[in-house]
Simulated assay, not measured.
Amino acid sequence: MIASEGSVQVAEITHFVYQPPATAQNACRILVKPNLGYPKKPPVTVSMGVLSTVLRGLRQASPNAEILIVEGVCSPVSLGEIASRNGLYDVMDQGMQLIDADTLPMQEYPNQSPHPARFPSMLAPTLLQEVDCRISVGALKRTVLKEEPLISASLKNLYGLFPRDRYKARSPHSRGQLHRPSVPLVLQDVYFTIGHLFDGAVVDANEKFISVDWQPDRGSAVPIGKVIWGNDLLVVDREACRIADELTPDYVEAIERMRDETRS
């Protein structure tokens, strides 16, 4: 079932208190997908301040839940090492577990788009269907691909869930197949295979990362001081762009049109 639009909330970074979606209340298992794919500090990756606030909010909603923090890296550095460098272990409780997405059992998710861009289905962790609640916690970044700006927020963050072994191209450390024919087009398939399963999104906009080229780990930071969250990835990403003075990405508008088409 394709997720419906929802409200969006914005807070100053110093006043952020996470309010999880209803599916997190008394859940048994919760999956959190943070942007931690690179061995870099924020704003290339999500800050521990924002991520720890999200984890605390989920723990308050479900005191006994198993909270699974799942990410797939984009470099030779292991997820455990990235987590250690960034201080993730310091904010995890005993009921939380860090999992490298590439180590999980996988299954094909059908593309529910009325107009698939490239993939009729996509391989992603079976775990997505074995939890009660799924949250994407993204960093706000702008890179340049084929001379066009690309905004990464909560939807683009989901790239880390796809296995590199299936989607690698020239580099075994990245998912180059998900850049062909273009990231904006493939993001449409990402949404209609696994994106619509997500119950909530958080965008860390304390700083906006701006790259001068395609590399999402080299650039500069612009202070914004905000956190944006809600229960709909597209609505959250649209609001994050507005607050960061960025144009709404074409892929967000295209997905919204197709989502409306599926309901008509």
Rank of each mutant, 00 (worst) to 15 (best):
V10W: 01
I228K: 03
S264E: 10
K208W: 10
D245I: 00
L150M: 05
H115M: 11
V54A: 05
S62H: 09
C241H: 13
L104W: 11
A124N: 07
M1V: 04
S174I: 10
R118T: 15
Y251D: 14
A22M: 08
Y89C: 02
V183W: 03
D204E: 09
I30Y: 13
L51D: 06
Y89W: 07
E66T: 05
K41Y: 05
T126A: 09
G49A: 10
V50D: 07
A27K: 06
R259Y: 03
R85P: 00
A61F: 06
N86Y: 03
V54C: 08
D213W: 05
A83T: 10
P149K: 07
V252A: 07
P105D: 10
P223L: 02
E261G: 01
G176N: 11
V235H: 05
I255Y: 10
V73Q: 07
Y18A: 01
P110V: 06
D213I: 03
V46A: 12
S136Y: 03
S84Y: 00
V222K: 11
G219E: 05
L36W: 10
V212F: 14
D165L: 12
E147L: 09
A24Y: 07
V91C: 07
I82K: 11
Y167K: 05
C133G: 08
G160C: 08
A254R: 15
H15E: 15
A221L: 04
F192S: 07
P149R: 10
I243G: 03
Y251L: 02
T103E: 06
L150N: 06
L128V: 04
L58I: 08
R59V: 06
R257S: 05
L234I: 09
L31H: 02
V17H: 10
E207N: 12
A254K: 14
A139H: 02
V186K: 05
